[in-house]
Lab assay of single mutants.
Amino acid sequence: MAEQVALSRTQVCGILREELFQGDAFHQSDTHIFIIMGASGDLAKKKIYPTIWWLFRDGLLPENTFIVGYARSRLTVADIRKQSEPFFKATPEEKLKLEDFFARNSYVAGQYDDAASYQRLNSHMNALHLGSQANRLFYLALPPTVYEAVTKNIHESCMSQIGWNRIIVEKPFGRDLQSSDRLSNHISSLFREDQIYRIDHYLGKEMVQNLMVLRFANRIFGPIWNRDNIACVILTFKEPFGTEGRGGYFDEFGIIRDVMQNHLLQMLCLVAMEKPASTNSDDVRDEKVKVLKCISEVQANNVVLGQYVGNPDGEGEATKGYLDDPTVPRGSTTATFAAVVLYVENERWDGVPFILRCGKALNERKAEVRLQFHDVAGDIFHQQCKRNELVIRVQPNEAVYTKMMTKKPGMFFNPEESELDLTYGNRYKNVKLPDAYERLILDVFCGSQMHFVRSDELREAWRIFTPLLHQIELEKPKPIPYIYGSRGPTEADELMKRVGFQYEGTYKWVNP
């Protein structure tokens, strides 16, 4: 592979701008107003304001973009700056750019259920340069409990009458099928589907988006991507930290609602779906819905739930269990780990287990898709061969690698495990991989909904998990304890083995 010439960040961002501006969906010269509902909250200060700053800094926003914060707290732009700027990672050389960014910011205080507050917000936006005809993007960085009041008031008082209007809704989209349907029906009564952007930030990850290209742009994968060759698929999300004093919020939802029903299920769809007619948003989402419709409700015998306990040999936070978090209700049975087996009941995947695993306070930070292939028929190497695996590593250190057998150097035919490896950090030294939120917010500006969740996708996802969630809430089974920093409950490994996964433990990928 030829040595790549190092590029400056300015040059890299210039390439990104060229890609972005050559499309006809990006209205570079139009006025846009980006409204952050819930501007005083954690999500706004840690993710949304920093993301908008990065896009502005790199010249990736339309030229005439204004940012308006809205929340109940009586704040000023200076207050917003004070709480969000520490997350910007701005350099001293960017000081003038930073001043320009905050000059485009404003803030309006108001209630979430008060019509007069929204009329005041609308008047404020109209007073901005060309504000009355601007395109408006409303980001709901809010708890779902206020979605209905907020969307109703936005629709009645704050819509642009000339430009387009788009609304970005953060997960969780309800707690179960019934609450999700209620919320979807409410929002759909106010906005068209092409105006609604239900954001799952995992769909903005580079390697998640790469799944489609790997599958449908490489001839070698087509013939082997089926039940005849693939023994099982494992989708993993692991965090090495616990709730760390923020367990009160987590306890309301648990690990299945927080990660599995959305992030992991979306990745499953991209692995299992048929080739779409095109890369058009609805063509892709149509195929994802077909996959979900082929999955039956989760069966309790295919589920393992766990909850982390303190590690007596650990240090600091590792010595504390979930129930030691003062914000967690006493005696909570909320799971911090889950392993679930699903089956896609169609011709391509009949009988292939899709194993979804996620948890907190585990032994490493990792998100990946792992396809394990069947054993080689007619073994001539005296059971020395391990199964081939194709691994798409989402985070950290984005990579695609194939675990395969090669001859060990020497005189004899002794096979050993090795890999074919594409590590993004080595291959793409001159490429700026956008943060997931950067990519998705740019998608909203461009009107691309491919990486957002459609209402029928959402409904099918909740259909699969709601009976299990209701059973857990009714019966309150005690989750299996696992030690902070471990791989999780051993019962999860036993479940995976029972459905056909072979864990060798003899080879570990190392970032080159």
Rank of each mutant, 00 (worst) to 15 (best):
E3S: 05
Q4I: 05
Q4R: 14
V5W: 04
V5R: 04
A6Y: 10
L7T: 04
L7V: 05
L7M: 07
S8M: 05
R9Y: 11
V12C: 06
V12S: 13
C13V: 11
G14D: 10
I15T: 08
I15C: 06
L16Q: 06
F21V: 06
G23P: 13
F26H: 08
H27W: 07
S29W: 10
S29Q: 14
T31F: 09
T31K: 13
T31C: 13
H32V: 13
H32S: 05
I33F: 11
I36W: 00
M37Q: 00
M37W: 01
A39R: 01
S40L: 05
G41P: 00
G41S: 14
D42M: 15
D42A: 11
D42F: 09
A44E: 00
K46D: 02
K46F: 11
K47C: 11
I48P: 01
I48M: 04
P50V: 01
P50S: 04
W53P: 00
W53Y: 06
W54K: 09
L55Q: 09
F56L: 02
F56W: 09
R57P: 00
D58P: 01
L60H: 06
L61G: 00
L61F: 07
E63D: 11
N64Q: 08
T65V: 10
F66A: 08
V68T: 04
G69H: 07
G69C: 03
A71Y: 03
A71T: 05
R72Y: 06
R72S: 10
R72D: 11
S73C: 09
T76E: 04
T76P: 03
V77M: 06
D79Y: 04
D79C: 05
I80K: 00
I80E: 01
I80Y: 04
I80Q: 05
K82A: 10
E85C: 06
P86Q: 10
F88E: 01
K89Q: 12
K89M: 05
A90H: 07
A90Y: 07
P92H: 11
P92C: 06
P92L: 07
E93P: 06
E94S: 04
E94T: 03
E94M: 03
K95T: 06
K97N: 04
L98T: 03
E99D: 12
F101S: 00
F101M: 01
F102G: 01
F102W: 11
A103Y: 08
R104H: 07
N105P: 00
Y107A: 09
Y107S: 07
A109V: 08
G110V: 00
G110T: 02
Q111D: 05
D113P: 03
D114L: 05
A116V: 06
S117G: 11
S117V: 04
L121A: 01
N122Q: 09
H124D: 04
M125R: 03
N126E: 14
L128V: 08
L130H: 07
L130C: 08
L130N: 13
L130P: 11
L130E: 10
G131K: 06
G131M: 04
G131E: 06
S132F: 11
Q133V: 08
R136S: 02
L137R: 00
F138S: 01
F138C: 00
Y139I: 01
Y139T: 03
L140R: 00
A141H: 04
A141Q: 03
L142G: 13
P143C: 04
P143M: 06
P144D: 14
V146K: 11
Y147F: 14
Y147G: 15
A149I: 11
N153G: 13
I154M: 11
H155A: 10
S157A: 12
S157R: 13
S157W: 09
C158D: 01
M159N: 05
M159E: 09
I162Y: 12
I162Q: 04
G163F: 01
W164I: 07
W164V: 07
I167Y: 03
V169T: 12
V169K: 02
K171T: 11
K171S: 11
K171Y: 08
K171F: 04
P172W: 03
P172K: 05
R175L: 08
L177D: 05
L177P: 12
Q178A: 15
S180P: 07
D181W: 05
D181N: 08
D181R: 04
L183H: 10
N185F: 07
S188W: 06
S188V: 12
S189E: 07
S189T: 07
S189P: 10
L190A: 12
F191S: 00
F191K: 00
R192D: 11
R192E: 07
R192G: 11
R192C: 09
D194Y: 04
Q195S: 06
Y197Q: 00
I199K: 06
D200V: 13
Y202D: 15
L203G: 15
G204D: 15
G204K: 15
G204T: 15
E206T: 14
E206I: 06
E206P: 05
M207A: 15
N210E: 15
N210K: 14
M212I: 05
V213I: 05
A217C: 05
A217F: 00
A217Q: 07
I220P: 02
N226C: 10
N226V: 03
N226H: 11
R227W: 03
N229D: 05
N229H: 13
I230G: 01
I230V: 10
I230Q: 00
C232H: 10
V233Y: 01
V233A: 06
L235H: 01
F237E: 07
K238M: 15
F241Q: 13
E244G: 12
G245P: 09
G245T: 07
R246E: 15
R246P: 11
R246T: 15
G247R: 08
G248M: 11
Y249C: 14
D251Q: 06
E252V: 09
E252W: 09
E252N: 09
F253A: 05
F253V: 14
G254Q: 02
G254V: 00
I255S: 09
I255Y: 02
I256H: 00
R257Y: 03
